[in-house]
Design a protein around this nucleic acid. Sequence first.
DNA 1: GCTGCGATTGACTTTTACGTAAATGCCGTG
DNA 2: CACGGCATTTACGTAAAAGTCAATCGCAGC
Lengths: 129, 129
Amino acid sequence: MAREYYTITELTREFDISTRTLRFYEDEGLIQPLRRGRTRLFRPSDRHLVKQIMRGKRLGFSINEIREIIKMYDEPPGEAGQLRLLIKRIEEKRSDLRQKRRDLEETLAELDQAEESCVERLAELGVNT
Amino acid sequence: MAREYYTITELTREFDISTRTLRFYEDEGLIQPLRRGRTRLFRPSDRHLVKQIMRGKRLGFSINEIREIIKMYDEPPGEAGQLRLLIKRIEEKRSDLRQKRRDLEETLAELDQAEESCVERLAELGVNT
DNA sequence: GCTGCGATTGACTTTTACGTAAATGCCGTG
DNA sequence: CACGGCATTTACGTAAAAGTCAATCGCAGC
């Protein structure tokens, strides 16, 4: 079954980050772990947030952008106008991500090219030696 | 036909960056435009490099990572050992990019989810009002 | 009660990736 | 030729995202 709570060091190990980083994310309001005394207790939901943060980081989003994205996963607002605004912002993020996907595919294609050149070059060398 | 040379401001407009940024990339050795006197002349190849740099940036690569990637597109080295090393490093970058692609798809999926919730919520509201 | 370990807070430092300002060069036009 | 406009260099500044360090706390085991 899923764990009750995680300690800060458990999460630092799992995600290969420092305690300082997790505390920084808390200061930034990205996560709000519970406390027993002064010790942080990370719930599975906190852990999932950290996972989302790390994903965002790998994709090159800033803390502010990650904050925005995470907020989008929250309960949707009750008012129609707010909802439409949120949908618009979600669509913006998605088009941002689709741009990233194009960038990614192009970069992968160029790396494929580069590797092929290397392999060819290596084959030539193999013949001559 | 393709342009001979681009001025610095042409490129700043095309890529929506500052002259400072282009000079910074030159300081960092990412590009080496020609000179007429002290004025920089950007060749199509320089322009293509800038394009690659911007792609790397959008994907969250640091200047150093971008430098590494760009070097991989250069002429492959002549020595077999070097070639094998380069191939290994290219493969590492590709697995890096594939991780980013997974991150990207997961984030897109979660945003889809979020948008769906919004649309549903909006439909409910539409019924009740 | 002491020791050691892990956790906490707070303050200060560092790195990256530029921004900004000041002073100056170059050059085409009226 | 002087002016506007773009370009250059040098120098210093800054925001984001942590890293590092020091002092302290709480608790388990001896």
